[in-house]
């Protein structure tokens, strides 16, 4: 009788241990405040935050006052993506920033982006091959830089990411420029907001 109880207890403990040992994984909405934030490294929400601020600045300073000009009347202005320099210690895909801005600008109904004219070659080579020479040249180009600055005071570590963007017209004049800085502090490799 005693042995039977002991066996049952052992089996129950084993089952409980097996149940608790499994990996705990959950899906998180990308726009939620539950995303992992690290001091060292640009997190996915940092790109969304910078892109959101840049798009709002473009709308506030250029689009909403009606200063954005299109070379073809009645059509949205055409944008080409120029060089976005990554001056951080990380290898990052700058499209994490630029694509978000492109999508947001397209949704304004005031801007379209060329997929055949871009710095470093066409984004869509097939269109370039099948479509022949472009019928329309861009009205503006978007260029920029992402810079990283680190500081440390005692146990506190600080990393700043500076996002700089410029919109130039075809005369080479920057008609819009902005800079957004995201600063993160922490005492351990990983911190929350």
């Amino acid at each position: 009788m005693k042995n039977a109880r002991l066996y049952a207890l052992t089996i129950l403990t084993g089952l409980l241990a097996a149940g608790c040992a499994g990996p705990k994984v959950t899906y998180v909405e990308p726009d939620s405040s539950r995303l992992v934030t690290t001091v060292e490294g640009i997190n996915i929400q940092d790109f969304a935050q910078a892109a959101d601020a840049m798009t709002a600045s473009l709308i506030d300073n250029l689009i909403n006052p009606g200063r954005l000009k299109s070379s073809v009347p009645g059509e949205p202005a055409l944008l080409a993506i120029s060089r976005i320099v990554n001056n951080t210690s990380e290898q990052i895909d700058t499209d994490l920033l630029v694509k978000k801005i492109r999508v947001a600008l397209l949704r304004t109904g005031k801007v379209q982006t060329s997929t055949t004219i871009a710095f470093g070659g066409a984004e869509d080579p097939l269109v370039k091959e099948l479509g022949g020479p472009p019928r329309r040249m861009p009205d503006y180009t978007l260029s920029g830089k992402i810079i990283e600055v680190r500081a440390r005071a005692g146990k506190v570590r600080q990393t700043s990411y500076v996002f700089q963007l410029s919109l130039s017209n075809m005369d080479g004049i920057a008609v819009w420029e902005d800079e957004r800085t995201i600063v993160k502090q922490g005492t351990r490799p990983s911190v929350g907001f």
Binding site: A48, D52, A56, I59, V103, A104, T108
Partner: peptide, 25 residues
């Protein structure tokens, strides 16, 4: 929008601040 995000912010004690936003479209 792909730019939708939860923005972190802090306020000192008794501080008043403005949160500004422009509609995406």
């Amino acid at each position: 929008l792909p730019t939708a995000n939860a923005r972190p912010r802090s306020l000192e004690g008794g501080e008043r601040a403005m949160i500004t936003a422009t509609a995406p479209t």
